[in-house]
Nucleic acid binder design. Structure first.
Length: 454
RNA sequence: GGCCACGUGGCGGAGUGGUUACGCAGCGGAUUGCAAAUCCGUGCACGGGGGUUCGAUUCCCUCCGUGGCCUCCA
């Protein structure tokens, strides 16, 4: 089955046709790094990791370029750096802060089973490209300089708003922001703005300043993927204004009809049915969750829901997913990979239908080599079966006592004292221990295994 | 207020103009001294109303509900 992807530009599932099958190019908006990433940040990272793996499978591992940027300059970063690094020159301070935070992020997403993108460019290392694009925009009449700022002039682009499907009139009607006096039009947005001495800044034709939010992605996608590329991804909240403005910048700078052919957006995440927010007390960083759950459980939970749907993250769902992975690990983690199931590839090829793909995994459960290959394709089985099983948190249980009780129970059973046998089992259950009796095939002896009740 | 999604069985969650995905839980059976684990089997649905159609959960309209964007939040 041919790969089809839902495209925000067309609002439909289109056949995916790469510009160059030898180099399929994808750009995903990465995190703004000023603190620990939260679980909502993990969704696009995991979703587009699955897409990256699928593209590598379909076009060959060396024929896909995946760029995920690092936003390492913005006002929240600047503020945090000024707080945490007093006295340090601002450009160095944001560098230190974002180095540290990004290293943490990278460790988090590695534990979530994500491959490293081909390139992870930083905004602050692409100031020259940003300036080049802004100069092109000014030369082309799409941007102007006013009061130390460079601004994109929205009315200069007749079909601005096509990605988000908004007319200028609608946007004007809904506008609630105060309009800066130097703007020619209320919709105009900042490409470059002046920095004070205690803010990070770089020299530019318009004075010392820093970039607006959107220009970095136009600059970095240009540098690493070219004037146009195949897939641009991110969270659905980025459709407007972020991606809309990137499109405006890139298309007008390069005089192209498109920036990327396909725009993909993942839905939002909720926690236990509520919007995740610090005020509701249900705000979780990836790091916090990794303390309680293996990364692959978080990953699996993320893929149980189609990426465009809103997802509800719940403890119940995580427990369910852990049990499923336990079963699959026991069956196939130590088995050499065969070929991934065709049904799995078909499901993923239909706009990354991961829930259907998971159903397919249940269907091929009996074929360990296929299950192994299929799960590896999805980014699972980073552990051996034994290592995985050991990930269950060690319960606070007195093992010596458990073993003594089990031995006593076996004696009672041998004596056909079932009342005593059952009493001992109840005692163990009360301790949170479940028993599993099995007859040894060779000796015929009853052997009792035990496990922590979940 | 403007724009846009979504509403499926106890729960999670796909999909389709007509043949009840799948998983978890439940129930029945096998097995077990009884259990647990395992295996086999099984019931349960498409927010309300209207329309199009031979036939709608699937298309259209409307109402209700939930959520998102319009504020440099994935």
């Amino acid at each position: 089955m041919a790969l089809r992807l839902y495209n925000t530009l067309t609002r439909g599932k289109d056949d995916f046709v790469p510009i160059d099958t030898d180099n399929v190019r994808m750009y995903v908006c990465g995190p703004t790094v000023y603190d620990f990433a939260h679980i909502g940040n993990a969704r696009p990272v995991i979703v587009f990791d699955v897409l990256y793996r699928l593209l590598r499978h379909l076009y060959g591992e060396t024929h896909v370029t995946y760029v995920r940027n690092i936003t390492d300059v913005d006002d929240k970063i600047n503020a945090r750096a000024a707080r945490d690094y007093p006295g340090v020159p601002p450009v160095e301070a944001i560098r230190d802060l974002t180095e540290k935070t990004y290293a943490q992020f990278e460790q988090d997403v590695t534990e979530l089973g994500c491959l490293k993108p081909t390139v992870t460019p930083r905004a602050t290392e692409h100031v020259a490209e940003m300036i080049a694009i802004i100069e092109r925009l000014i030369a082309g009449g799409f941007a102007y300089v006013a009061d130390g700022h460079a601004l994109f002039h929205v009315p200069a682009m007749p079909d601005y708003g096509t990605l988000a499907r908004r007319s200028l009139d609608d946007m004007m009607a809904g506008a609630r922001v105060e309009v800066a006096p130097y703007k020619r039009d209320p919709m105009d947005f900042v490409l470059w703005k002046p920095s004070s001495n205690d803010e990070p800044g770089w020299e530019s034709p318009w004075g010392r300043g820093r970039p607006g939010w959107h220009i970095e992605c136009s600059a970095m996608s240009w540098k690493h993927l070219g004037e146009t590329f195949d897939i641009h991804g991110g969270g659905i909240d980025l459709v407007f204004p972020h991606h809309e403005n990137e499109v405006a910048q890139s298309r007008c700078a390069f005089h192209k009809d498109v920036m990327a052919n396909v725009f993909m957006h993942n839905g939002f995440l909720q926690v236990e049915g509520e919007k995740m927010s610090k005020s509701l007390g249900n705000f979780f960083t990836i790091r916090e969750l990794l303390n309680d759950w293996p990364g692959e459980v978080l990953r699996f939970n993320m893929l149980k829901t189609h990426y465009r749907q809103p997802i509800d993250f719940t403890v119940k769902g995580l427990e369910e997913g852990w049990k499923t992975l336990d079963e699959w690990y026991a069956i196939a983690a130590d088995v050499a990979a065969g070929r991934p199931s065709d049904g799995l590839i078909d499901a993923l090829s239909d706009d990354l239908n991961t829930p259907k793909a998971i159903a397919e995994l249940h269907a091929v459960k009996g074929d360990a080599a296929t299950l192994s290959a299929s799960l590896r394709l999805l980014g699972f089985f980073g552990d051996s079966a034994v290592t995985w099983a050991a990930r269950r948190p060690a319960a606070d249980i007195d093992e010596v006592k458990v073993k003594a009780l089990i031995a006593a129970r076996i004696e009672a059973r041998k004596a056909k004292n079932f009342a005593e046998s059952d009493r001992i089992r109840d005692e163990l259950v009360a301790m949170g221990v479940v028993l599993m009796d099995a007859k040894n095939k060779d000796t015929g002896e009853i052997e009792t295994a035990w496990d922590v009740k979940r």
